[in-house]
Design a protein around this nucleic acid. Structure first.
Lengths: 158, 158
DNA sequence: ACTGAAAGTCTATGTCT
DNA sequence: AGACATAGACTTTCAGT
């Protein structure tokens, strides 16, 4: 993982559909060299995928909520996580430190759908109670944190 | 927005680097037709971008925290949001209903860096206090919610 | 809105340095 | 690890329906 890799990653986080040829121009390598590096980054699990991002309101998912999930005394984390994964409206799922077991992000069409979803969440074995925070607006989301990538490539491959 | 569009979106959410030729095969259209549809979805703002997703631990960002930001009585939401946007470690920022003004997701390298980041957050004008929840593990994140897309295309363009 | 064709570009692989 | 060559695939545009 040298600076060239970091710049490739930054470029792909910014534009996941950039061509290898373009990437090569950006980092000063041939397309085939970039192709090889990206392949290795994918194989190594550094790059886990490429995804289109969609405006949720324009696809009928205008209601977002952050839901804290408090476990029962006898709850099994893995079982709870597995059941959360079954619910398509649960977009993200974090196991957290503190009173709650999980914090999940739920995305649904309407507040009615949110109510139904919360009902499903509460019915999961191991869930004692939930606490919902409705998102009024998403200022930004999933921004790439590309701190130290602006430097020129150093050429010293790792 | 017909079923074909929804299937195209679902495919691009799953694999943002899929080719138009492939997409065409998946939805039963020519590559040029798909190209045109995707262009329209982008122009309409339905598809807002394409991004590579990276394993945070493998790029030196192993510590994630969800931070509730409680405002002062005189806080200006927009100013606070603008200042949050300046901090690269703040990956997502939600304006929420309830006691807190914002919930943000912070991604940093170490707990020391988290402490520094929380200091920066608290120093923002309009921030009264913060409440941090450290993420122990991310079970899944940003999953596509593609509910009603498995049906065959109906061919009735909107 | 879609198809099909055509020109240019890119990918993916192999060889060589 | 990367450059270069290349065959096949893909993109992008345009005329036609």
């Amino acid at each position: 993982m040298d600076n060239v890799d970091r710049r490739i990653i930054a470029a792909l986080r910014t534009n996941g559909r950039v061509t290898y040829a373009d990437l090569g121009r950006q980092v000063g390598l041939s397309a085939s060299a970039v192709h090889e590096r990206v392949g290795k980054l994918e194989t190594a699990g550094v790059i886990t995928g490429y995804h289109a991002v969609v405006d949720p309101t324009l696809v009928g998912l205008g209601v977002t909520a952050l839901v804290s999930i408090h476990p029962t005394d006898t709850a099994d984390d893995e079982d709870v996580a597995a059941e959360l994964a079954e619910l398509p409206e649960v977009e993200s799922c974090y196991r957290v430190a503190g009173d709650e077991a999980f914090v999940v992000k739920v995305r649904v069409a309407t507040v009615d759908a949110l109510e139904l979803s919360l009902g499903r969440l509460r019915r999961i074995k191991g869930v004692a109670r939930t606490r919902s925070t409705v998102v009024l607006s998403t200022r930004f989301e999933g921004r790439p944190n590309v701190s130290d990538v602006d430097e020129p490539a150093d050429g010293n491959a790792g």
